[in-house]
């Protein structure tokens, strides 16, 4: 568990996150946008999670891939990114390619048209379905930034990662709510999972303690239309 007295040093403008000195826009959908390079980053898409459950006869709606892609398409319209980075676990498992709907493959193609697309490898998708294009990398290095699926323990300046699906339970005088969130200490950032069927792990879990140690962190919680920077002290454990 994190240190109880975690607070933050300054109130950033809502929706803006500074990582390793670079200014990002944190979108309420859970994506990051690096304005200077028009780079859009999404983490943990988990395409075909629904059909992976269906294999075990739990019939989740078969629309999660389409729903996730539709949200990326809206981001692409809003930000016109030059490149899109998917931070690993983009596909829920290695059989996803056998189950994915053709229409969804076409949507991916359409999104890739005219821009660079980087699939960072994750533990769920060590290999990609054969029918999708884009560049596959274990780690993607971009200037001072390192895009990696699973964050490294200890300090890591400029690291942007996913894998942990951070969420926060936030309390105020009106009650409490649990939201996906970005977690950052200014030098690194763990992104929320973007996929339609992805859950969250409370950032007060010890998994995060290994990353941030005693350093002060800020939680950027996803609201309906905007991202709210919240003091870690207003957050509860699960």
């Amino acid at each position: 568990m994190l240190d109880r007295n975690v607070t933050i040093h300054r109130a950033p403008a809502s929706g803006a996150i500074e990582i390793a000195g670079l200014g990002f826009v944190a979108d309420a959908s859970g994506a990051l946008f690096l304005e200077s390079d028009r780079l859009l980053i999404v983490a943990d898409l988990h395409f075909e999670k629904g059909s992976a459950f269906a294999e075990r006869r739990v019939f989740l709606p078969p629309y999660d891939t389409a729903a996730t892609l539709a949200r990326i398409a809206r981001l692409a319209l809003r930000y016109s990114p030059r490149a899109i980075v998917a931070l690993g676990d983009s596909f829920h498992d290695t059989r996803a390619g056998q189950r994915i709907h053709e229409g969804d493959v076409s949507s991916i193609e359409a999104l890739q048209r005219g821009r660079e697309w980087i699939w960072v490898a994750g533990n769920h998708d060590p290999e990609l379905p054969a029918q999708v294009g884009g560049e596959r990398r274990d780690i993607y290095q971009h200037g001072p930034l390192t895009f990696r699926h699973e964050p490294l323990a200890g300090e890591a300046l400029g690291e942007i990662a996913g894998h942990l699906h951070p969420a926060a339970r936030i309390r105020s005088q009106s009650g409490s709510t649990r939201r996906r969130c970005f977690v950052t200490d200014g030098s690194r950032c763990v992104m929320p999972a973007f996929g339609a069927f992805t859950g969250g792990l409370n950032f007060r879990d010890e998994a995060f303690g290994k990353l941030f140690g005693e350093r002060e962190i800020v939680v950027h919680a996803l609201g309906r239309d905007r991202v709210y920077a919240v003091s870690a002290a207003s957050c509860l454990a699960d």
Binding site: I170, R171, V230
Partner: peptide
């Protein structure tokens, strides 16, 4: 729900 977030952000 979002009110909670806004209040927590105001606190911040």
């Amino acid at each position: 729900q979002d009110q909670i977030l806004a209040e927590a952000a105001d606190d911040l």
